[in-house]
Computed example of a mutant assay.
Amino acid sequence: MDISVVVPLYNEVESLPELTAWISRVMDNNRFSYEVILVDDGSRDGSWDEICNLHAQNPHIKGVKFRRNYGKSAALNTGFEAAQGNVIITMDADLQDSPDEIPELYRRIVEEKFDLISGWKAKRYDPLTKTIPTRLFNAATRSMSGIDNLHDFNCGLKAYRQAVVKNIEVYGEMHRYIPVIAKWAGFTKIGEQIVEHRARKYGTTKFGMSRFINGFLDLLSIFFVGKFGKRPMHFFGSMGVLSFFLGLVMAIWILAEKLIHIAHNEKYRNATDQPLFYLALVAIVVGFQLFLTGFVAELVSRNAPERNSYQIEATV
């Protein structure tokens, strides 16, 4: 199979007929073998009934329904697991992504041998309250990840080589940083393509201002896991050793000062009367705790088997 199109959705019943018809038209015109995987993330507006109707009309359209709303990352991860195409295309269900972009995205993955192509909506129809924070997050992500050639990490329209989606895991709200996850997994040939951003035709956005706070926390999380996930002792242990060493130096300083005063028969303050004593004590204790944290983290696997276990109510 040439292409799998994975579409996560939540309460998008109005746009589904137009979106799937558009995708099918593009596929047929280019003679692609394909499947469209619609992942219903717990919709309550009749989206699943519409998916079942579309499946009955077109067997290329498949559906997965979550029992409740888990989030976009969960929907994408489940779609990736189900995808069988050599190239996987992801897009949003709100018609703001154009299926006409699919042939060029496919060509670049197949002919130019990219691992991942991320869309860049250079001209957007979003308000400034959304675009300005997005630009700040993109700048921070470029700086922390080292992926300097991407302008929009969170664009829903992306293309992947099959090996990429089968070897990464998207959980929590990490869908914003899939290129970073792919890079940490060893897929480094990542490109960008300017794509059309269309105004929303139906419904309203499902994301509020809280996503920007969550996005920053997710960025810190993905940076830590990507850099130290396999060697947490390098992070906690190095900080612990540094803290312990600083505390030890301060303790030695206090002891040496006391011995010098004794040697010269001079009066001296008790060690416990000096603020430096307590700083040294805290630094030694914190250093020891950080070292133990790193040791325990080395023993505990971060890949809990139930982390991406979702209750799927039905499939078609």
Rank of each mutant, 00 (worst) to 15 (best):
G215F: 00
F228S: 08
R161W: 12
E196C: 13
N138M: 01
F216E: 08
E173I: 15
V195W: 02
I222Q: 10
G208Y: 01
V249C: 13
L246N: 06
M144Q: 14
I194G: 10
W253R: 15
F207R: 15
S210Y: 01
K166W: 05
I252F: 14
N154K: 09
S143Q: 13
H151G: 12
G191K: 03
T141E: 10
V170L: 02
I213S: 07
L136E: 13
E257G: 15
L242D: 03
L220N: 06
I178M: 09
G240N: 10
I213N: 05
C155F: 03
R231L: 10
A159C: 06
V249F: 11
A182W: 01
Q193R: 14
K189V: 06
M239A: 12
Y177T: 11
S221G: 07
G229V: 02
I181E: 01
D152R: 07
F137Q: 11
Y160F: 12
F228V: 07
D148V: 10
F235R: 08
A185D: 03
A199H: 08
F216W: 04
F244H: 04
K206V: 07
A251T: 12
A185R: 14
G237Y: 01
V241T: 13
I254R: 10
M209R: 13
A185P: 05
E173Y: 14
F153P: 06
N154W: 05
F224E: 06
N167E: 03
H151F: 06
Q162D: 13
N149C: 04
